[in-house]
Design a protein around this nucleic acid. Sequence first.
DNA 1: GCAGTTATAAGGCAAGTGTCTAACAATCGG
DNA 2: CCGATTGTTAGACACTTGCCTTATAACTGC
Lengths: 234, 234
Amino acid sequence: MMADAPVPEIPEAGPETRPKTRPAGARRRVKRESPLVRRKDLLDATVSCLARLGPRGTTGREICRQAGVSHGLLRHYFRNPDNLLFETYEQLCEDMLAHVEASIAPFEGDPWGALHAFFVAVFSDDWASGDIIGAWMVFWQQVRTRDDFAIVSTAFNMRQRALMERIVSRLPPPAGPHPSGPQPSGHLPMADAIAILSAVLDGLWIEYYLSDRRTPHDRCIALCDQAARRLFAA
Amino acid sequence: MMADAPVPEIPEAGPETRPKTRPAGARRRVKRESPLVRRKDLLDATVSCLARLGPRGTTGREICRQAGVSHGLLRHYFRNPDNLLFETYEQLCEDMLAHVEASIAPFEGDPWGALHAFFVAVFSDDWASGDIIGAWMVFWQQVRTRDDFAIVSTAFNMRQRALMERIVSRLPPPAGPHPSGPQPSGHLPMADAIAILSAVLDGLWIEYYLSDRRTPHDRCIALCDQAARRLFAA
DNA sequence: GCAGTTATAAGGCAAGTGTCTAACAATCGG
DNA sequence: CCGATTGTTAGACACTTGCCTTATAACTGC
């Protein structure tokens, strides 16, 4: 799967003339790691880099620096920096969903509890620290212009909503005698309610990202709970 | 990073052959513009660049290219590319608020109408096209690491919420006989409701940004309306 | 121990970037 | 019509980045 552009390198005359002998340079001693470990190192370093330096500072070389390896190693494990970025995105989506699923699993028979656990998971420090959300935002930007990112994004989105829907569909029906009130605030189609709740999550993520002091962790979760009650317990 | 347009090769052979004196006529003709026009050109080009190329492709030189001026001009009007980015952010905030304010102004006595106009304004194609939202996301990322951006962000946030609050406070009180239902979905503190609605807006922005086909313009507005009814017309 | 394997480091190169500087020319006052 | 002002261009420089290639050294099995 290389298919890189053919590089018609003109074999410059006398390539041997250059003394390739290492000038007794002190080569760093290295601890050899298994490919999987190194790959993970690079993936992690990418997230960290995105978080600390933003998209502009996240260069292949910087990632390697952060991972403590030489810049040549990136190419050894990934086609190029963009590819590394993409795989990091895939990984993050996967981890995130797994984390949420695990968090709501114990609440099989308690939909409200599951919903709460969902929110807690989504705002958990490990998976949605301000820093990591910064990485998400970089990925979101890629979604718009790159097809591979868009595909992953769509899949992630669908799976996340499916999780939500599964919980919500088990909630007790919204209280019998609904007078429909003066405003047409009657029943909300499930898809709409999910879409709104999903938007609340994303929006609070951003708020939290922009300033975790302005809208701290606990308040985000509380707001999610309230929004859910408003949407589903009318 | 980012492979882009192919580069026209102009291998001028003799570096010394070209004297310091301009080689007669290689210089582009220029139309001289007023400082304000040129500044605006550059600011606009920045947004456009962010939208088209994302943060990584938005370099000082690229902005100038897009604006149709030489790269030296940037420095003539701005301290450096970062400064240009910052001023673009300020401008965008200012314009956005002005646009929203103008949109809701005609609905002084009709809070529900004003709220709807608010949503329409926020999702108006001119001010929140998918492309422009891309620019917003770049700016958001700066907020976290740069103090000047954070200050502008906070101010913008406060002003936007003040606008919302002004509308919401004029809504008719939430329908007399509130049975409080089986769930404690009673009254929501104003600040909480505003925060939630605000999150819905941001979240739908992202949704819209990620795929305007998945969540098109009109649906975003409809979802906002529904969320508002749920939050304020219980 | 000593091959062979291969993870890893490091250097070179072309291209692009930000910053600076000097030159040029469009416009204006006279 | 000319000289001053200053908007504007374009070249130079140091540096960084991505990509490629080669040398090196840390492990492997024998």
